[in-house]
Amino acid sequence: MILVSACLIGLNTRYDGKNNFHQVFCDMVKNKIAVPFCPEQAGGLATPRCPSEILGGDGTDVLDGNAKVITREGLDVTENFLKGAFETLKLAEIIGAKEAILKSKSPSCGSKCIYDGTFSKKLINGMGVTAAYLYQHNISVIDSDEYLKQRQRS
């Protein structure tokens, strides 16, 4: 079983109330090989919600207490992101997931790069909070954009 970011199957869970639908991920759920999940909603954040970015590092730094997640308005939502990561791992353990396909660039789900915390659309290398937490717990984290590129090449 695989965890997949809920926005990738067409659920309107993104911060702006929209989704990042790709049929391939929807098919994975239909074929019962994947389960959708949104860590930000599980962490108690509403949809739609103000966009958030990690300030002072990446998800690993947030987990270590050395960075925080803030909204564009400056509200600290670190606890929501941590709770979402913890809940995601619980679900992974319940369903026996060893991998997760997560939305690229997200402060929760990004696995290769995330926005830099300045809300200027600048990307930095690093993982989101949930991606880093899953990785620390031996769950293979796969970037959704990379997954799609690899499928196109094969």
Score class of each variant (00 low, 15 high):
Leu3Ile: 14
Leu8Phe: 01
Leu8Cys: 00
Tyr15His: 10
Tyr15Lys: 07
Lys18Val: 06
Lys18Phe: 04
Lys18Asn: 12
Asn19His: 15
Asn20Phe: 05
Cys26Ala: 14
Lys32Met: 12
Ala34Ile: 10
Pro36Phe: 04
Cys38Arg: 14
Cys38Asp: 12
Gly44Val: 08
Leu45Glu: 06
Thr47Tyr: 02
Thr47Cys: 06
Thr47Val: 15
Pro48Thr: 11
Cys50Leu: 12
Glu53His: 08
Gly59Leu: 07
Thr60Pro: 00
Val62Lys: 04
Gly65His: 08
Glu73Trp: 00
Val77Ala: 01
Thr78Asn: 05
Leu82His: 02
Thr88Leu: 04
Thr88Asp: 09
Thr88Ser: 15
Thr88Ile: 06
Ala92Leu: 06
Ala92Trp: 05
Ile95Phe: 01
Ile95His: 06
Ala97Val: 03
Lys98Cys: 06
Ile101Asp: 01
Ile101Trp: 04
Lys103Ala: 07
Lys105Met: 04
Pro107Met: 05
Cys109Lys: 08
Cys113Met: 14
Ile114Thr: 01
Asp116Ile: 04
Gly117Lys: 14
Gly117Tyr: 11
Thr118Phe: 02
Thr118Tyr: 05
Lys121Ala: 12
Lys121Glu: 14
Lys122Ala: 13
Leu123Asp: 07
Leu123Lys: 15
Gly126Lys: 14
Gly128Val: 09
Gly128Leu: 13
Thr130Tyr: 09
Gln136Trp: 07
Gln136Thr: 00
Ile139Gln: 09
Ile139Lys: 05
Ile142Val: 13
Ser144Trp: 00
Asp145Thr: 10
Leu148Ala: 10
Arg153Pro: 00
